[in-house]
Design a protein around this nucleic acid. Sequence first.
DNA 1: CTTCTATATTGACGTCCGTCGAAGCAGAGT
DNA 2: ACTCTGCTTCGACGGACGTCAATATAGAAG
Lengths: 113, 113
Amino acid sequence: MASSCWSPLVGQPISPEHASEISRVFKALGDPVRLRLLSLIASHAGGEACVCDLTEVFDLSGPTISHHLKVLREAELITGERRGTWIHYRVVPQRLASLADLLIPTTAETVAS
Amino acid sequence: MASSCWSPLVGQPISPEHASEISRVFKALGDPVRLRLLSLIASHAGGEACVCDLTEVFDLSGPTISHHLKVLREAELITGERRGTWIHYRVVPQRLASLADLLIPTTAETVAS
DNA sequence: CTTCTATATTGACGTCCGTCGAAGCAGAGT
DNA sequence: ACTCTGCTTCGACGGACGTCAATATAGAAG
């Protein structure tokens, strides 16, 4: 929750609680494997991919991939839906958009002095 | 270097090298203290702040703040310039914009099936 | 029910990271 | 030259993180 009510980094200093919440999402993105997973899921046909599609790309064990997917899931960057045997993951575009909003300076207000 | 030539996460899977490079920047943002530092610098009058302005905000030692500033500096998210006694830090807006570009889905292409 | 496949969880191990105190460096002022 | 102040670097410690093998769970198929 509180996905899209983040105030931008510039303009006024963010609160410590705010910072903790946001840093968890950036931390989830701060790993090359997770970044590739996210990109693989987003780029996959239909906007979704099952774990088997992802695991074979990497030279990593199944549990490791599963762990990274969990981190992305807990950051609400992806969601997983079970359909029969397979679990299909897809990205949460609003989440990415929220982060982008956070970073974009709204440049006009920066030089206020 | 290679600041703004990042291809977006969606569209096609990013390369491992790409992912490593980008993850370093997100990792720098994946800490609440660094996020607050960035926001404090960006929000400070004139768009810049010296370390003394920053240190007094936190309940952390000087060396710790200096360490976090170094991480942000190496991620090219901020730059520091010495003017007399004080060192003034300011954010690199192009860097933030690059990250935002990376995250924004260019939504039309996502649902291709 | 049993087995097979797909994915998640657990527990352990090594490495990376945030934090501190102490020491170092660079300018400014006396 | 000496010192004072602002900031960084160094060395160390504890906790967090990425990885794996082993085990567990969930659904499908026989």
